[in-house]
Amino acid sequence: MLGKTANGLFWMYRQLERAENIARLIETGQRIALTRLGSTEEEWKSVLQTSGSLAGYYEHLGDEITRDHAVDWLLRSKDNPGSVMSCIAQARHNARLVRTAITTEVWEATNTAYMTAKDQLARKVADRDLPGVLRMLRQRTGMVRGTTHGTMLRNEIYDFARIGTFLERADNTARIIDVKYYVLLPSVMSVGSSIDNVQWEILLRSVSGRGGFRMAYGAQTDPHDIAQFLILDRRMPRSLAFCIGKIIDNMAYLSADYGGQLPCCVMAEEVQQKYLRLSIDEVFEYGLHEYIQKMLGEMAALGRQIEIDYRFYE
């Protein structure tokens, strides 16, 4: 496979994953606004921060953060490369670039997702339409994942698609924790205050993890459990441990195909060894914030090493 194609696949799936994550963040933000349990402006600010587009927002829309502006910025702004629309458009661009590597079904699903997004996001989305639009976008990107599962050969093409997906997902989960890590810290306030409960719920909603969490840990919410769930729980498909595990698996398939282990594989395994085999108490001892910062750095480095090892550019 061409290095360029591997690059295109990696990014196509990263962007699809990102589009979905941003859509989920908007849903969460919207939820807060509706329940009016938190400070709306503060919450939209942290949503923007998590999405990595806060600086862009300030630059294009000024200092004031309003719900309307934030939703529009995250959903459809062309000036925001991380908006849902931009991500889907870039994913389709990459799909076109790697058209020969994906099946007709995957291409058509991607193209449909793009056409739906273009259609639905042509104008500002009205409040009452927002849930429907977000649901439809999530379904459309889900179709791409579904056709990928159902029609693509399990070969190097699939491996790069998966590596892109999981690196983006791990990055997203880490960012969510990074912005909200403080709500998981042992609090001076009494456990179970309504503020904390709201924040914990936001955290879980941002990773579509409320139901899963309840199933695995019971109805009683505990910050330790949440941290465990988001970082180390290998049952949770958006946890750091799960995502890094998948990346390692897919890299191992590549190594088996290509023969020989590349530096990026070693790197991913080291991350797993050093950071994901800890207990959650050890993570808190390390310092939750420092730990997440470290993970974000490691994942960025891993992304760069993948580019080099699989000759994405040169």
Binding site: M1, L2, G3, K4, T100, L254
Partner: peptide, 24 residues
Amino acid sequence: GVELVEGNDMRVMDGRLCMRTTQG
């Protein structure tokens, strides 16, 4: 079932036209 290449995917090496794949 063949590769779609652009100019920057290729270079002349060892006296042949070669394309940059994930394995060299």
